[in-house]
Design a protein around this nucleic acid. Structure first.
Lengths: 136, 136
DNA sequence: AACCTTTCTGTGCGTACTTACGGAAAGTCA
DNA sequence: TGACTTTCCGTAAGTACGCACAGAAAGGTT
């Protein structure tokens, strides 16, 4: 019965008629954007770029633990979505700089709010890990 | 030289001394929390629960496209982090209700900000997909 | 007795992410 | 000449994600 597929939108497409996305709809393109922005490294890259233009290796140093491969991959996603502007100096050895676009600045702000909350709330969250359910 | 491992924190641990997490540190536990909250379905589940307590199947209907397997998985992550409260009525057929904890309410607010922005900004983002780089 | 209900869990398997490793470019420096 | 620089890409390999499918539980209905 439940094919698990659909958006159950009308003939014209709800989100299309509204002029905005609908993340609860399975086939809405906004799902892809969410995946990029909230990808493992996407969040951290956006935040890192909030402090200004960075070279590739600077980002790699800042976002600790990311591999070259994944950093490049993540930056391509963000660039394709218009969040990040890539500037290639066309020299050897390569020199490439990344910066947030106006769209990226907005996204970074939103993501930053979540990140800050996590960092600040970590003690409370960790308490849950250790506490379990004593009486229940 | 670069082992790609470290947090480069001091002897006591920077984030530990500050009493908060540091997402840029590779080994900080806050990374796991970020992963849970920004997981493919985590974001959508939190938002769905903002409107109140839901049964499992209600959530599955609301968050279109999620499988039973992944919904259960996601809810377990969120429960372990103290974001979601699970209430099992211990009956057959099963009846289980999920609701946000005070911690979850806060997290959902932050995540919601990002989600709303994505939905509203989708037209601008899609424009980037189609535009490419015409002049460059 | 056979079937239905709901919320999961176990199995199997395909897809996607992620890492490690090696290579390429063109000029600089020993 | 050979080593070094930086930013990627190709490949192989490993891990985690995600789905379809089947099964289980206890009682009510047919």
């Amino acid at each position: 019965m439940d094919a698990g597929d659909g958006t159950a939108e009308g003939p014209a497409g709800l989100s299309a008629r509204l002029g905005r996305g609908d993340l609860m709809a399975a086939e809405c393109p906004s799902r892809a954007v969410l995946r990029h922005l909230t990808s493992r490294w996407g969040v951290l890259v956006l935040i890192a770029l909030q402090s200004g233009t960075h070279r590739f290796s600077d980002l790699r140093r800042k976002v600790r633990g990311v591999s070259e491969r994944m950093l490049a991959q993540t930056l391509q996603w963000l660039e394709a979505d218009g969040m990040v502007k890539r500037r290639d100096f066309q020299v050897v050895p390569p020199r490439v700089e990344y910066a947030l676009t106006p769209l990226g600045v907005e996204a970074a702000e939103k993501v930053r709010i979540l990140a800050d909350w996590i960092e600040i709330s970590l003690p409370r969250i960790v308490a849950n890990w250790e506490a379990g359910e004593p009486t229940e």
